[in-house]
Design a protein around this nucleic acid. Sequence first.
DNA 1: AGCACGCCGACT
DNA 2: GTCGGCGTGCTC
Length: 703
Amino acid sequence: MSSADGTGEQLAFIRETVRRAKPRAARGVVLAERQPVARVLVDKGVLSLDQYFDYAVPESMSEDARPGVRVRVRFGGRVGAHGRREGGALHDGFVVERRDDSDYAGPLAPLARVLSPEQVLGPELLRLCRAVADRYAGTLADVLQLAVPPRHAGAEGEPSPRPLPPPGAPAAGSWERYVHGAEFLASLAGGHPPRAVWTALPGPEWPGEIARAVAATLASGRGALVVLPDGRAVARVDAALHELLGAGRHVVLAAEAGPQERYRRWLSVSRGSVHAAIGTRAAVFAPVRDLGLVVVWSDGDGSHSDPNAPYPHVREVALLRAAEEGAAVLLGGVSMTVEAAQLLRSGWARPLAAARETVRLTAPRVRTVTEYDQARDGAAQAARLPSVAWETAHEALTRGPVLVQVPRRGYAPRLACGRCRETARCRACGGPLESPAAGAVLVCSWCGTEEHDWHCTECGSFRLRAAVVGVRRTAEELGKAFPRIPVRTSGRDAVLATVPGAPALVLATPGAEPVAEGPGYAAALLLDGWALLNRPDLRAGEEAVRRWLTAAALVRPATEGGTVVVVAEAAARAVQALVRWDPAGHAGTELDEREELRFPPVSRMASVTGSARAVADLLGLLRLPAGADVLGPVPVFGGNGGGAGGAGAAGGAWEEGVERALVRVAPGQGAALAAALKAAQIARLALRGAETVRIRVDPTDIG
DNA sequence: AGCACGCCGACT
DNA sequence: GTCGGCGTGCTC
């Protein structure tokens, strides 16, 4: 509120108040000559203090307290009896801006300390984080926690390497297989920002293709960023970049490196000495200088969704970033999300795909079987394999490894009564019982209570059956069906990156499929397709297609005998998409349907979760844009997570009083929705305090 | 969140 | 008269 012409006055006031604020140090505190005010983001998680606070800058800190540095400040103290400032806990913060004056009328406290002169929060990163916070109705402090890694003094002390001059533009290589592939690379190399949704061909070439896109961008003198869903994918692109560009041109920002090494690499990017970064979801914030290209691989993968508030999605952050920094976008994957299809339909991005003929030559043959074609053969029957699947595997095992995709982890994750099929539940808490290994004692997967003498509460039967059979159980059964063939498993706790090209059965849960060395798998069996398709989730079809295509993409082309057998209803749309190898068509059809139903991403939704009272309060304070509607509130099953949104099964307990409402707005009203939610949240905190409401924009689990 | 100020009832 | 209940509001 201070006017520009009042600067001198304000300055005098600040000097005076600072002298008054710290009387004992007063003689020592000399205010900075230039820009004596530091606008600081105080990193105090709770209470929606999503605002800046001004602090006085002592001359001694003036040099170091540049925008973007980490500082410590006193916050929450009181001006005591004699105008003396006392108390106030120390908090971390970032200097956001240096100013000549403050619009705060009261006395300014001095910065307590500059933690280090490293400018970790540059103006572009700050703008991005601000945009992400706004997009997701979250606070800047929360986003910064995701975007700026924790400080490691040791790493800051070391100098970063000298930047290398730009490499030469790469040849198009396997990009030639795509209709506009070479053109896309040339555009990147020429310094332009093309935006593409890339439907990658099956096979092992995609990491190399990403590497070429990065190289082309570096050749234009700009930086590049690649975000991948998991460490194995990062390792593959890392290897491809090493092969194409050698060492020193890129860094890997992933958890496995350890905090100090990770911070060292992050600094080398932040300082501009390395121009390309690849990594998992947090890497989307990596402050690559002069960003020319953002690549997001397999944006439908759940790990691109950050589990921490405000739950940003890598794809959305990447798009915000590209828009702000004028960078090219490459949204690629073997499959295609509805969001990507929407970018194509709106014309924001252009398709990057191979001709139909090329797809036919690259993809494996896909066959469907229903569960009813169970094999007559004894061994195959024991393995619960349809005869076509058994025959395919049997033949393929003479030529190479066979991948078996099993949708659930563990041994037999859900057990049911063998007679009436009622789910077997824990007597202590009602949670589902599981069987850790053959013959082992049953254990509750919620509370861990052991069950020694189970019997069905409905019909009294003592017989159990596996409702969904997991990897390990299937491995045992297949081992019997294919004697002398080695069986390997890859799942959550033990993920294999690769398997040899020799004949073997390779069982994996979705997302954990190892890459087969050599020409790829001879065949793949996609079991229990119904389990994927019948989930009560808006994305069930899209997710099934993605998982199937991801596994099928590891199989040899049909021309080399590669075959995929999927056990699912052949008429289902998702199954057809796999058979025809048409992820773009499927995503387009899904988009049509979302449009009709006004579902995301055609509309934008947010969920509001909390006690019935708190949710009602927030909805009451919410001033929504025209055309918005509120669905619910409805009771939430299972409570605590925002994630587990399964339909309430009979016999389960409804968590007392927890409700969820969905708020939906028309296309283009997303920003208004987020702003309204945030305003309501702040208003609610001011009025009542306590009881929190979890707000989630783009909720993942809408049935 | 802390933490102080403030405007009401039971004590010395 | 004074101590202290925790309701309300501010923190640069």
